[in-house]
Nucleic acid binder design. Structure first.
Lengths: 230, 230
DNA sequence: CGCGAGCTTGACGTTGTTCAACTAGAGTGG
DNA sequence: CCACTCTAGTTGAACAACGTCAAGCTCGCG
């Protein structure tokens, strides 16, 4: 299992959450004393679908995928790589995770007792307000996702995914994806074989460049057109 | 357009939100003075995908569908018929609705200025906590939905929908659905023709009974097996 | 040098959509 | 009151989209 250590100075942490600025110094220290920093290697599970929610999860360093597991196939809902709480809706809404989170690269997660976070949320309105904004944004993201998946066919879905990575996630025409072909397929809700096929189709048509896991968007307008038409 | 009237006694309202109990009397009066009660007929839009969020929407009476509009087909995400805020995540997360809400029967909606709700949320932690719980639950609902849609094929999806209506929504083996066949199809993410086909298949096999829009679940175990296997 | 995981490509079968024709019932106007 | 129209529902058949299976490839690593 992963290595872990105690948090020792949340205030000075370069990866700390903005929401902490809404708390008193003593409350932050309280979090610090109840926070375990856990290191995960690529592929390791950070939380598992179906298990009980006992901690708030804060991604300090690295990147993770949030996905739902089905009988035979998975669906990746979101990739996260910035300092951010993961799955707060599980803290306030449900006792059990309805998704799995696992590391895409070596990552550091701060695990804070959920009862402490709930207590702080119930007594610090500014803090809770920040958490609520995060939950709302993530809800809106999933709404967008559900539309993409349902209304478009595979070429459009893959175009959507590539545009999202280039324009919103990496904010760069060239980016190195931490995902395998299978994971990219699971992100776009299609079989791995079809993801490969369509990627190479786009490459042959000069729409994108592929070099292993490094992608370059050569003709974003065409990609956008494909994404719009479905 | 719909008829509307001023709210005159939120405290005495039998449909009022539980979250109001977390507010001072003066704050509730403030809501009351900034609340418009609007009557919608079946089919009328309560809010429209793509438009700006200006009010919090509270369903007092009736029932509504929340759906996302695509180029040619829609996907119904949720049906609501109890006293409940609708789409709070849009208040805290985004400036624009990413879904449309419309009435399934004659319904009453309380429309409250969003700036007032946000102000109250930022100053009353108990109130905000209730709203956050509602948002989180709705997020979890959509997670469940996205799994159903993605991991199962149409027989399983329709079985899922029927079980949900019978066991969780109406809590009755027999129920009268306010949805047309097309809407039931949009709820289960399939073509209307296939929804009809599968419904009649289930009827012929004695798994359900159908009388117009009244459904009876005759063999829930078989339906559950179909839903599980996909 | 050989093995295995991830990737690639083609052929084929299944699932589900689309199109088209038809039916039943509800509402409308002569 | 009856024809007319319009919508919702129904059924069958053709077709397209996508997943699955199978085989071969490549590259990194022991």
């Amino acid at each position: 299992m992963a290595k872990f250590s105690k948090a020792n100075d949340c205030h000075a942490c370069p990866y700390k959450s903005y929401s902490l600025s809404k708390l008193d110094k003593s409350d932050v220290e309280n979090i610090q004393n109840n926070c375990l920093i856990v290191n995960f290697k690529r592929g390791e599970n950070i939380c598992k679908q179906g298990t009980e929610v006992t901690h708030a999860l804060y991604l300090a360093k690295g990147s993770v995928k949030i996905y739902v597991e089905g009988n035979s196939k998975n669906l990746i809902l979101e990739i996260i790589n910035v300092s951010k709480y993961i799955g707060l809706q599980s803290l306030f809404g449900s006792k059990y995770y309805n998704y799995t989170v696992s590391a895409l690269e070596d990552s550091q997660i701060c695990m804070i007792n959920s009862s402490l976070i709930i207590e702080l949320a119930q007594t610090n309105v500014g803090y809770l307000y920040e958490l609520t904004k995060t939950i709302s944004e993530s809800t809106n993201f999933v709404y967008k996702k559900i539309v993409d998946i349902n209304q478009k066919q595979l070429r459009g879905r893959l175009a959507d995914a590539l545009l999202y990575f280039s324009e919103e996630f990496f904010k760069n025409n060239t980016f190195e994806l931490k995902l395998s072909r299978r994971e990219l397929a699971e992100y776009s809700s299609m079989s791995m074989e079809n993801a490969v096929r369509v990627l190479n189709e786009y490459k042959k048509d000069g729409i994108i460049g592929i070099e292993g896991k490094t992608f370059t968007i050569l003709q974003p307008e065409i990609l956008r057109k494909i994404a719009e038409l479905g």
